[in-house]
């Protein structure tokens, strides 16, 4: 119960931060953080898959509504949520079939390496999908690639900052 409230609060907070602040940030024209992804990353993997997809879709829809990019974020989030369990399995070495509470990208629960790859891969998946759907063209692909890499770098950086500020490593494995 406590967990649910914490999750909902985190969702609201990150969504507000996204639409109020992050959406207006654009460094050098190709670096814009997608902070709300953190809320999706921290979503428990034990939830029913369909519910995870729905949450992803709804989150994307809200972000879309504020950015006037209907379908772009919703699609990308849903795809990311679909691929998330497979990424976790891959990172765990495929021997861990059942997901547990410890499969969260939280400092202290997982090591830096795991969190970094988890965040990087999922952010990259989201950004590839979102940027490509947003530009809708392969023209000027160099710049599109730059935007994908810039957004991913910035997002991972911001998410890491927040992760390590709010979860000090008190319980080391």
């Amino acid at each position: 119960m406590n967990n649910i409230i914490a999750n909902i609060l985190r969702f609201l907070l990150l969504l507000v931060a996204q639409v109020a602040i992050c959406q207006h940030v654009n460094l050098f024209g190709y670096m814009s953080p997608a902070l709300f992804l953190l809320a999706l990353f921290l979503l428990p993997l034990e939830l029913p898959l369909s519910l995870q997809y729905l949450i992803g879709f709804a989150t994307g829809f809200v972000v879309d509504a504020f950015a006037h990019t209907f379908g772009v974020s919703s699609f990308s989030c849903t795809v990311m949520m679909f691929l998330r369990p497979y990424i976790v399995k891959m990172l765990n070495g495929a021997n861990n079939v059942k997901f547990e509470n410890i499969d969260r990208p939280v400092p202290g629960v997982k090591d830096f390496h795991w969190i970094f790859l988890y965040t990087l891969i999922l952010t990259f998946i989201y950004e590839v999908s979102a940027v490509l759907l947003g530009t809708m063209t392969f023209k000027n692909f160099g710049h599109t690639l730059l935007v994908i890499i810039g957004n991913t770098t910035f997002t991972v950086f911001v998410i890491f900052c927040i992760e390590y500020i709010f979860h000090p490593r008190e319980k080391k494995e």
Partner: peptide, 14 residues
Amino acid sequence: VLAVLLILSIVMLG
């Protein structure tokens, strides 16, 4: 659910 949501997204995008 996944298919429905993805199709919905594509329709919105279109």
